[in-house]
Design a protein around this nucleic acid. Structure first.
Lengths: 194, 194
DNA sequence: GGTTTTCGCCTACATGCTGTAGGGTGGGTT
DNA sequence: AACCCACCCTACAGCATGTAGGCGAAAACC
């Protein structure tokens, strides 16, 4: 009758549920209900809950890596940075559950995946337009990721809800500030003035 | 015999458990076991699991606000910024469960608490040593929080584990970079080159 | 001093989720 | 036609949340 289930289908459905109800609401029972199947049936496709979550993380990682790749292709400098940041924010807003699935310690397999490797590479690519010395790239990449992810996290937890103006304005300032920072990357003991 | 339980004791014990085993492992059953009591007994002190978590968040918020207050008192500029950032990082490292309790959407009561209000005020105080115009303070505070919290989040989820050098080095660069950024806060349409 | 109230923890239970064991059925193969 | 196996099923054990109601001991009251 119905086409048989597969790991991919289960994980995709779990991701959809996460986006609708929040990552923490993703339960094997709930996914089974959505798929019109009994809960134990899912264990043939997914080892356990941890594996399901890892699958969602891997899925999100792959999607995001593709989006980032498309966004920064052919751009550089502030242009690339804007596109890079915009993709993250859009993803966090449009797929909040998937985005949440990235904010956790994932299994080894996920960490070593191509998508995960790509993500760091892409962050490095954004830096190409900036005068950050090669041996400082790690730090710049970490700073970039920290600020972008941190902003999205605070926004999601409602940290900005009780002060004006809307987060969008701060987001723009933040991206511009990061651009300025990267263009004048400080030397070890302070800043150099040009 | 034993002194009777109280909400404060239950919450404190839950916080201790969170630090030992992770925030997501905090369960009313587990806390009851630690306290040598049956699980339903806790419901006289804590309305439900959500209330317990909110209590932990409020506790952490209060502790952190006090630590920050002590750290930035009498300091300014980079000195204050360093102390401010250091308190956050130390707290995240020494009380990981409590820190995790801050990375969630808390109930209204917690959000409106004095401690929560203090935290924004304190972030603003750090900016006093920098030439950030008053109407830009919100953005700077948000940026500061984003970067600091984001770094700690990425560090905790193991994002930095598979690249060298150790996060400590990046942390230092990050704080220095934030200092540089605040000292040369970019104007709205770009940066001014001094 | 004895009675009564109250407080704090208890047992019992309903409900929901995870994960295991093992059964049955239908579609494809030979 | 008989077989097999992929796929989903039922049954169950274990642990979590949260409700209802009981019991005992200490405090309060006459």
């Amino acid at each position: 009758m119905r086409p048989p289930l597969s790991a991919a289908i289960v994980i995709a459905d779990a991701a959809a549920l996460a986006d609708e109800a929040g990552f923490e609401k993703v339960t094997l029972s709930a996914v089974a209900r959505r798929l019109g199947v009994q809960a134990p049936s899912l264990y043939s496709h997914v080892r356990d809950l941890k594996a399901l979550r890892d699958g969602m993380t891997a899925l999100a990682l792959g999607e995001l890596a593709d989006l980032v790749a498309a966004a920064i292709a052919g751009r550089s400098g502030l242009d690339a940075l804007r596109a890079y940041a915009a993709v993250y924010r859009a993803y966090a807003q449009e797929s909040p559950g998937r985005w949440q699935s990235l904010q956790r310690r994932a299994g080894e397999a996920v960490v070593r995946s191509d998508a995960a490797r790509n993500m760091s590479t892409q962050a490095g690519a954004v830096l190409r337009g900036y005068p950050v010395p090669q041996d400082e790239h790690v730090h710049a990449v970490r700073l970039l990721g920290s600020t972008i992810n941190g902003f999205l996290g605070l926004e999601r937890t409602g940290n900005f809800d009780h002060s004006s103006p809307a987060p969008d304005v701060s987001w723009d300032r933040t991206v511009v500030a990061l651009d300025a920072l990267l263009r004048a990357w400080p030397a070890h003991s302070g800043t150099d003035s040009s």
